[in-house]
Amino acid sequence: MTTPVLSLRGLSTRFGSNWVHKGVDLDIPPGEVVSLVGGSGSGKTTLLRQMVGLLTPTEGEVRVFDEPLFAGSREAQRQRRRRFAMCFQGGALFSAFTVYENIAFPLREAGIATEAEIRELVALKLTMVELLPSHAALMPAELSGGMIKRVALARALALEPELLLLDEPTAGLDPTRSASFVALIRDLQQQLGLTVVLVTHDLDTLAALSSKVAVLAERRILAFDSLEAVMQVDHPFIQEFFLSERSARALARAQGA
């Protein structure tokens, strides 16, 4: 059995007196695209932020690449953090930098590539996310919503991560752009062999991308399996989430595509 890229062990989270998660266990094997779904307020984004170490769980442990997230020296942690990247919902681009500088920033910080190589790597990332070289000089404030997402993806891919975490990758995009962004993520995932964890509300995105679905409800992972298998689980939340009329239409559309 392959070692999981990311695993959560007995993760519990408490906000005030309210337990958001209680004993969450999840193992994400390499090469999978895992969608994290759950009702509003079920703590999906909290879980994602714990995976990257922005929040510390009340109890339990997050392991990435078979090591605890916070283990080792400063340098070891830095090396580990380079192996995964996150795309934030609003892009979180550095607003004082141009698109070029945004993508070049992690490369410069890593201090491995020379300036000329960085230039070419940025051009490469831009073509990978299907943006034009002329977009490099723009400021984030001049970009459309879809372009912000693409630049954020290019920046996340700059350090060649093995694990990519996406928070609501298609939120705020119209259906056409959303579909093309999903196709882009899927292509890149296949080409680069990435492991992807995403949080989404959008059933089109979920059906088109995920190889596995993790359902977060009742403070724990209710089911973790392929979409078809998860849909068979007899639980009110799952039934309502996947089998409502609206969901059925979205899923049929995705399978038809």
Partner: peptide
């Protein structure tokens, strides 16, 4: 192979220098 195809495509469209 795809890695080098991408690089070839990138050479066609370099980032303009400021």
């Amino acid at each position: 192979a795809t890695q080098f195809e991408r690089l070839a495509a990138m050479d066609e469209a370099p980032v303009p220098h400021p």
